[in-house]
Nucleic acid binder design. Structure first.
Lengths: 220, 220
DNA sequence: GATTTTGATCTCCTTTGACATATCGAACGC
DNA sequence: GCGTTCGATATGTCAAAGGAGATCAAAATC
């Protein structure tokens, strides 16, 4: 249905996840059925004000009507007071591992997508870095699209025999690959990389990649 | 029905009035029937998110989900960016005159309510002050309850023959009377009072009161 | 590999918002 | 007085939310 409410709904969803709550957990706190929460987060329900407030309160959020004029200032304040989020480095590592699994699947389905390999390279290097705190944002911007793509293909798999990727998805892969390339060069210069335990000539795993600033020059 | 949505609804209502829009005018802009807007502002409708956003946008407001932690900061910012409101002194004078009319009615119905006399005194003094800008807030906090009380009694009048005031209303009158007393003492010291045209020994109108710090001491 | 968790989806039924339309009393202006 | 505007209400219709289930596939966990 997609209302103009997207932002609010998105914020609600993010808040729930940020607090580590499942839909069912939130359902128990609020009395709102899980099925309904799902519909809401999907954007398939035009929720009532009382319900919205109820959900928001359970997530320690308050609904505010702010003058359009004051919006930028308010957003800035919110960003300052409650920083982007405290994702732990451990969470990020988990994300990386999960994304690598997904990429492995995807690569077997789409062997000819070079972008996937670039993504894999970037993430594999990242998976060997102990503290990913500094790279959280970059990594998230890689892992998130990957999960999205997987969901897409999963849906396609259910219906069709033939799996095809829409142009938009291909473009997303390309863009994300750029981020992965950036990440790789950042990490290559990182003091964090040399450490851990000595690895035989940088050969890491079975399918692992040599990540010393390997040429591949072109960046776009 | 009274949901926790009160604040939002109140803000919406205030925003409409601040922009000088009638319910019908807002209705035309948004397509939402006036009858519905009335119900909403009355608190008798649990509005849907899409409708709320629509109304808000028409009033140049944006709905925001802000972390409870950031609330004070946000409220402060909003106050700074969009100042309290520009009620004109003329509007205030009008409010005062209207409230005086209402009090006259109320006093004839409830001759034994001394609080009403205190209110009348304060407002009558105010009605002779040219520029009420400095006292807008105080005056509003007097006139608003008066109008509310009138609405209550008006409703009672429709049903019953006997008109009685609930204890809560009596308490409201007492509290408001305190504000009126404050206002009177403020105005008594105001340079604005002496002015206008010479009045015969401060006898103003037919039912007017001598407002040089007149005793009347007792408050109960 | 087996089990639990999670989120999406469906059904059945009740409640209620949204809209249209009309009326009402109070207040204001002419 | 007379017409207008304002906000509050009433009635009837329709679509969608709310609520209580249950089911299911994919993920996460062990």
């Amino acid at each position: 249905m997609k209302h103009a409410s997207e932002d609010i709904i998105e914020a609600l969803k993010n808040a729930r996840k940020a607090r580590g709550l499942s839909q069912r957990a939130l359902s128990e706190r609020t009395g709102v059925p899980q099925s309904h929460i799902s519909k809401i987060e999907q954007g398939n329900a035009d929720i009532r004000l009382s319900s919205l407030i109820e959900l928001a309160r359970a997530l320690e959020l308050e609904l505010k009507l702010v003058p359009r004029k004051a919006l930028p200032a308010v957003e800035s304040v919110v960003r300052t007071v409650s920083p982007p989020q405290a994702t732990t480095s451990a969470d990020t590592s988990k994300d990386v591992r999960r994304a690598l699994d997904i990429i492995a699947q995807l690569r077997s389905t789409f062997p000819d997508l070079s972008g996937l390999r670039t993504l894999q390279e970037g993430l594999q290097i990242a998976s060997h870095v102990k503290d990913l705190t500094r790279y959280q944002e970059q990594i998230r911007s890689i892992t998130k699209p990957i999960r999205d793509i997987q969901k897409q293909t999963a849906q396609l798999k259910k219906r069709n025999d033939e799996i095809t990727l829409p142009a938009s998805t291909l473009r997303e892969i390309t863009q994300t690959a750029d981020v992965a390339r950036q990440l790789r060069s950042h990490l290559a210069n990182s003091p964090q990389l040399t450490p851990s335990k000595p690895r035989p000539a940088y050969r890491l795993d079975d399918d692992d990649i040599d990540f010393r600033q390997s040429g591949e020059a072109g960046d776009g």
